[in-house]
Design a protein around this nucleic acid. Structure first.
Lengths: 114, 114
DNA sequence: CTGAATCCCTAACGATACTG
DNA sequence: CAGTATCGTTAGGGATTCAG
């Protein structure tokens, strides 16, 4: 399959991943599913409840993750990556690999300036 | 290399690609470099001059593309993908592949609703 | 032809307080 | 515990105009 700019299904993938916290949420759920709401919150420093909720909702809407509510007191809600969501892993992997190299590239760029 | 959520160099990659027009610009420049400003504008329907300019500047800032100005009248400016920029191709490919499948997934989801 | 400058609007994000 | 509701801020994007 060739990269055809005009078709640009690339944007579809980007839309899924865009959102300040979505990639990190997905990485966590890929690494370990299911995770409770509070577990996710613990693992993601700096995220607010509102943001975690909204990003989870959007991912759920796209069938990337699954939300299971247990009717107990106190409430218990578990989130898992779906099979469909797992199909994003190659993208995340490619990004992770690139991101790691990118860090080196930035360092070398700084060196040049001295 | 393993996907480690906490390191999250993934975000670095995302930051590069995020911007409404960056992926499509990159796809064009990967497909054919160099391209003049006006050529890019022609190939990307709907983009304004301001957006094209600003997105190109940001990509240039990250060494993803290269800008060459020819001191002629009328002005001529050519943009090319850099070697470094080409390293993004695996990500774009992964996204493109996923995006294509995603289209099918959405169609099937619609079917279910009837 | 290739921009820069300006103004405006909206969507995303964030802080905080409240609830079953 | 796992959320909503509300309010405010900010950044991204867009329309338009002007300029070398």
């Amino acid at each position: 399959m060739e990269l055809e700019p005009d078709l640009c299904s690339v944007s579809d993938a980007l839309e899924i991943l865009v959102g300040k916290w979505k990639p990190i949420i997905l990485l966590h759920l890929i690494k370990k599913s299911p995770l409770r709401f509070s577990e996710l919150k613990q693992r993601i420093p700096g995220i607010t409840q509102k943001m975690l909720t909204s990003q989870l909702r959007e991912l759920e809407e796209e069938d990337i993750i699954q939300r299971v509510v247990y009717p107990v007191v106190p409430p218990k809600v578990e989130y898992s990556i779906t099979e469909y969501g797992k199909s994003l892993e190659p993208i995340l992997n490619a990004m992770h690999e690139w991101g790691t190299k990118h860090t080196l590239h930035k360092k070398q760029k700084l060196k040049q300036e001295f």
